[in-house]
Design a protein around this nucleic acid. Sequence first.
DNA 1: CTAGAAACTGAAAACCGTTTTCAGTTTTAG
DNA 2: CTAAAACTGAAAACGGTTTTCAGTTTCTAG
Lengths: 141, 141
Amino acid sequence: MLQYRKMSTMPRLAKNYRLVFDVVRKQGHGRHLATADVFRLVKRRRVGIGFTTVYRALAKLRDLGLISEIHLPGADSAYYEPAGDAHAHFRCDLCGSVKDIAYVPSKRVVAQLAQSNAIEVNDVILSLHGRCVSCRERESA
Amino acid sequence: MLQYRKMSTMPRLAKNYRLVFDVVRKQGHGRHLATADVFRLVKRRRVGIGFTTVYRALAKLRDLGLISEIHLPGADSAYYEPAGDAHAHFRCDLCGSVKDIAYVPSKRVVAQLAQSNAIEVNDVILSLHGRCVSCRERESA
DNA sequence: CTAGAAACTGAAAACCGTTTTCAGTTTTAG
DNA sequence: CTAAAACTGAAAACGGTTTTCAGTTTCTAG
Ligand SMILES: [Mn+2]
Ligand SMILES: [Mn+2]
Ligand SMILES: [Zn+2]
Ligand SMILES: [Zn+2]
């Protein structure tokens, strides 16, 4: 699970893959694009592109460690964001909005869990679920 | 999200729903049944039952808080286990096996995250991913 | 340059877990 | 008993994603 942080060390990408990457990267961190959002934005720049190609690009970029693919219980498609520091996600049960949460279980705790369970942990995924600010406001009205 | 821990306070369940509940409950904690596993085990006791009914039973039991439904990135169906204390799950990327992990972010940390992000957190889902013991052994051979 | 191999492309079809629809049957409440 | 509510199962639909196919484009030797 390599990660190319610098463009200089980044492998040469096909034109379309590059386009998909640019679309995801341009959102910056904290924005979470559903697969359908990526399609829409990519099509805006290259009308004829097939959704198969976009799926393949997303998979490759994910494998290269350039973007991260987010799966949240309750959401019905994957979400994408540029690769960056590990963090958790909050998803509103009511409106489906997704928000970054600056927290991740400490390395020490995870190492301890790995040891006591005799497993090798390569990834830790944390998601919070509940009601977002605006949904809480709207509901209390 | 109520939870009926005692049979005495448990609502009356239709025969089939009861059957599905028994199948899940009989596995005890620490066993994780994929939807297909539940079908198989239920059909063993009631041959003619339709999978639609099983899906409906699982949804209702989940809503009643009697069982918990687990969604793990990488797995292609839901898993079920009897309701119990909160815990995390480990899923082996290679063989797909699922294991309970006795850890959950502390109430204090979650409350702090909720406050600083102005969200209401109703659920915290933590999953670990990597290689299980047997897969590590098999790979090193 | 010129093969040939490897990577990429997009339409269409397949996939597959899950949900919905339909036309009933069974159970419950009064 | 009677009407409403809950439950049932077959079949069809759903929807995000993957696979297949028949090419086209790009890369790598030589
Ligand atoms: Mn994020
Ligand atoms: Mn468990
Ligand atoms: Zn919301
Ligand atoms: Zn394994």
